[in-house]
Design a protein around this nucleic acid. Structure first.
Lengths: 209, 209
DNA sequence: TCCCACTGTTAGTGAGCGTTAACGTATGTC
DNA sequence: GACATACGTTAACGCTCACTAACAGTGGGA
């Protein structure tokens, strides 16, 4: 992860602002003029850098999903042999992503179907492989968990970790480090609980009721 | 809960199909002609039943948020005096909602900003009160949890429970009752874990790392 | 100096789409 | 029978908006 010091190129500026705007008001809710205005040029000037509005979305979504997958692969490779460490690292990486790239998270599961078939297939493929990474890690730690339940649990934990964009003002919530710690506890607790009481007992899972 | 036996009115048919289409392709991604076709009439015939496309979305979102809030209020009232029972019942109700009304869930946090100011205020108000219901219940069961963390945890659990729409085909996942049980365990486990290790320890929360 | 690639501008075009207008028909009521 | 109401239809309007055309300034390399 080479930390870059050079100034962002125009393409990158555009992608960043487009991501923010798309996340705020949806793909169809944002006009090219607004995206242009956000980077100081106006409207059709964007077409010097991208083939069209669709191309920006495609590049964003493909980029996110591939980056997420590569990060996951790297982390599981580093933790090879220790399922616990792999799962911890996956959770850690996903928390970083959720806290640092809120707009991208939102886009990721909101505007996927706007893509051309080929791009959507690309994104879906990366997503699927990322999920499988998680499912393997989870089942490595909790071998008792059936595959379907592990997969559903992984999706649920994604929903849990990706919940930060829904917290309105970033004031009334814990600071970044506290938030990361809380999400870590929530995710571990959820998975731990999923692995218990797995024997078809679908009535009172917890305390009372 | 009066189970209705009479046929759904045309308005209700339209709302149901509109909800499904909006959830699938987004508010702007669906044309009025498609909505009309989905109920067997064509395009502008919808205007005999609704003032416009916006009005359909507004009625949907206001309806969902108010229904959710009323259900929560009823459940906490029924469980008055027992914080544990209240939280259990809230979780149960939200799971039912998530499993039975997937399209509405999706709409609920995706298309809110398309609404007129007055309607959006209505929805936001219901949402806020619903969250506060949960925060009170959570803090009743786990008094050690600070308010900001309880609120963040509640949002996270919403994300967890609302994750079912993201599961592609409804075939590769557990059946309805198994899924409900799994979500119950996940939610309880997450909140339980949030309440522990609350003393600013933001490093190793769980097992290894 | 000439050239050309790069990056931007404004004006215009064409398609999509929400909405309205004008009109037709069945049903129940006086 | 006359009439109002409810519920549809098709045709057309007008606005928004992505995209293109035509044009212009800037800067580096031969």
């Amino acid at each position: 992860m080479a930390t870059r010091t050079d100034a962002p190129t125009r393409r990158e500026q555009i992608l960043k602002e487009a991501a923010r705007l798309f996340a705020e008001r949806g793909f169809h809710g944002v006009g090219v003029d607004e995206i242009g205005a956000a980077v100081g040029i106006s409207g059709p000037g964007l077409y010097r850098h991208f083939a069209g509005k669709d191309a920006m979305l495609a590049e964003l979504l493909v980029g996110i999903s591939e980056q997420l997958l590569r990060g996951g692969e790297r982390r599981t490779a580093e933790a090879a042999g220790s399922p616990g460490a792999a799962l911890d690292s996956l959770i850690e990486g996903h928390i970083d992503f959720a806290l640092d790239d809120r707009p991208l998270i939102t886009l990721h599961d909101r505007e996927l179907d706007r893509l051309r078939d080929s791009d959507r297939k690309l994104v879906r493929s990366s997503q699927r492989r990322y999920v499988e990474l998680w499912v393997s890690a989870v089942r490595g730690v909790y071998p008792g968990l059936a595959e379907a339940e592990a997969r559903a649990s992984v999706h649920a934990v994604f929903g849990l970790l990706n919940s930060t964009p829904h917290l309105g003002r970033p004031g009334a919530l814990p600071g970044r480090e506290a938030m990361a710690g809380l999400l870590r506890r929530l995710a571990h607790g959820a998975l731990e609980a999923a692995s218990k009481g797995d024997a078809g007992d679908s009535s009172g899972s917890g305390r009372s009721q």
